[in-house]
Design a protein around this nucleic acid. Structure first.
Length: 502
RNA sequence: GCGCCUGUAGCUCAGCGGAAGAGCAUCGGACUUCUAAUCCGACGGUCGGGGGUUCGAAUCCUCCCAGGCGCACCA
């Protein structure tokens, strides 16, 4: 039995049609509550005109108690109007877990995110990585998977050494080394009497936590490198030009990757990468998800090749690529280099627009779309940020419920639903489809878009219809509670708070 | 040169095989309310361009044009 009302209805109609039916929500209300194109899709197989099939289907579908009216339109669309009882029953199943738990099969999933080197505070670029990756993790968890979020950082490489040297030079009052790190934060770290990398790491942990990302596991590159020696003999490799190469090109990569410098036996970065791939998969994750900026998209092939070379199914490695965040100031692009102190840090963004607006903003665009942040405009954009529109709907509902508690309601569901009630309720029943698709496509940006639609429908409902003291009070309160749950869930999935008051 | 991403309303973007959308901006209306951080209305589009596939293309294929990001013995 499908888990939610829309799927059950689709299943019933599928049975009648003898083909898989997907119910769509038409934009135009004249096209009904739901529409399906089965007749158009199956017409070639039946060798019959689509409209004829649609007519037959309409006559049989309208006998279902759930269906009030069925029209055939256009080339053969079937437009459906759903009955009042269907709505009332749909409302009853909207509980706190509504729309979740659909994962099939349940998996152990690791999402590795942010993973910026501890050479500076969290940048807005990394913040997008975090906002996106964490939302994907939350979606997978809501779907029913066992999800672990991991932050991997390099504590041994050249950049870290350079960072230490930069802090050291600062402490001695000397000029920074060639290409070294500069900026206010460097002075903050220099003022502390402790290891710069550990201090920076602690700062990153604090900022990540403040940004509502809960990391389950912090993994150091030094730990991974310790596994390399034992791993090497198992690799498909060869020596040439003073270097040991991994033969990744035979496993789907565009070229072979250098592993070890023969002269001194020092490991090159791919050695750690491949060891980390094995480390993840050996820890028992069915799936290891990497969240990488577009500047790392060349990684996809080599990571999958690494898995394949080690004898794992490369499909267990999944790489999510998001386009970069560009910093614009007074119409001019900044370079965004941490070393040159040219970046915008997350803490600066949080100061200006706050956590809710920042998380909303960074996750509302498709990962395929680059984001420009104009620092000067950030605060201005705050007031226009739709996050407050959605939060306001939640707070308004909380207000109604507070007031309603004072005088208990007693009334049955209305004999006929108001169009505003229907629209709102219908919107809520979209939620399971929205989350399932957002999860499947790793596209959390669908959530804020949907949440705005829910808030829209609620604000309209609220404006025209009275809840407390109305004849339909009990039903409308239930509708309010269901709306509140769906909004709260959407916000939670993207790491935004759902306030009781505003 | 090769690879990935993008080009939809003045601006920022959704939609990615089914009947063109939202926010902002601009203009005009609605508060004795369960919160006006709200609501209603108007304005606004050869969906970068050409070919193709399909009953049907913003959506798929192909070629152009424009922009972003890669193509390290840096991470």
């Amino acid at each position: 039995m499908p888990a939610n009302s829309v799927d059950r209805l689709a299943a019933k109609i599928s049975q009648i049609a003898g083909a898989d039916v997907e119910l769509e929500r038409p934009n135009d209300p004249a096209h009904g509550d739901y529409a399906t194109n089965v007749a158009l899709r199956t017409a070639p197989a039946h060798k019959r005109p689509p409209r004829e099939l649609a007519d037959e289907l309409a006559q049989r579908v309208v006998d279902l108690p759930e269906v009030e009216r069925a029209d055939v339109a256009g080339p053969g669309f079937l437009n459906l109007w759903v009955a009042r009882d269907w709505f009332v029953e749909a409302l009853e199943e909207i509980d706190a877990d509504y729309g979740g738990g659909f994962a099939q099969p349940h998996q152990r999933v690791q999402v590795e995110l942010v993973s910026a080197n501890p050479t500076g505070p969290v940048t807005v670029g990394s913040a997008r990585n975090g906002a996106y990756g964490d939302s994907v993790a939350r979606l997978l968890r809501f779907a029913g998977h066992a999800v672990e979020e991991e932050y991997y950082f390099n504590d041994t490489g050249r950049q870290v050494d350079l960072f230490r040297e930069s802090v050291g030079a600062r402490r001695r009052g000397e000029a920074p080394p060639e290409g070294g790190y500069v900026g206010e934060y460097l002075e903050e770290i220099a003022a502390l009497d402790r290891d710069p990398v550990e201090a920076m790491l602690e700062e990153i942990r604090r900022e990540i936590a403040e940004f509502r990302i809960s990391i389950d596991s912090w993994r150091r590159q030094a730990e991974i490198e310790a596994e390399v020696a034992e791993l090497l003999p198992r690799l498909d490799m060869y020596e040439a030009e003073g270097t040991v190469w991994a033969r990744t090109s035979t496993y789907g990569d565009d070229k072979d990757r250098p592993l070890v410098r023969s002269a001194d036996g020092s490991y090159l970065y791919f050695a750690a990468d491949i060891a980390y791939v094995r480390d993840k998969l050996e820890r028992g994750f069915d799936r290891a998800i990497y969240v990488l900026g577009a500047d790392h998209h060349g990684y996809v092939a080599r990571l999958k090749a690494a898995a394949a070379m080690l004898g794992y199914d490369p499909d267990r490695i999944e790489v999510l690529i998001y386009q970069l965040v560009h910093i614009v100031e007074r119409g001019e692009a900044r370079k965004g280099s941490k070393r040159r102190g040219d970046v915008v840090f997350l803490r600066e963004l949080l100061e200006k627009i706050g956590i809710d607006a920042a998380r909303w903003y960074l996750v509302s665009r498709s990962a395929d779309q680059p984001i420009d942040i104009d620092v000067d405009l950030a605060r201005e954009q705050t007031q226009k940020n739709p996050v407050y529109y959605v939060q306001y709907a939640h707070a308004r509902i909380a207000g109604i419920i507070r007031n309603a508690d004072k005088q208990p309601a007693a009334s049955a569901a209305p004999a006929a639903l108001d169009p505003l009630e229907r629209e709102l309720l219908k919107r809520l029943t979209d939620f399971p489809t929205i989350v399932a698709e957002a999860t499947e496509r790793r596209a959390p940006h669908a959530l804020p878009i949907y949440a705005i639609r829910v808030a829209d429908d609620f604000h309209r409902f609220y404006h025209d219809l009275r809840v407390i003291g109305s004849d339909e009070e009990a039903f409308r309160l239930a509708l309010c509670r269901a709306t509140q749950k769906v909004i709260a869930r959407c916000l939670d999935l993207i790491g935004v708070e759902a306030p009781e008051r505003m």
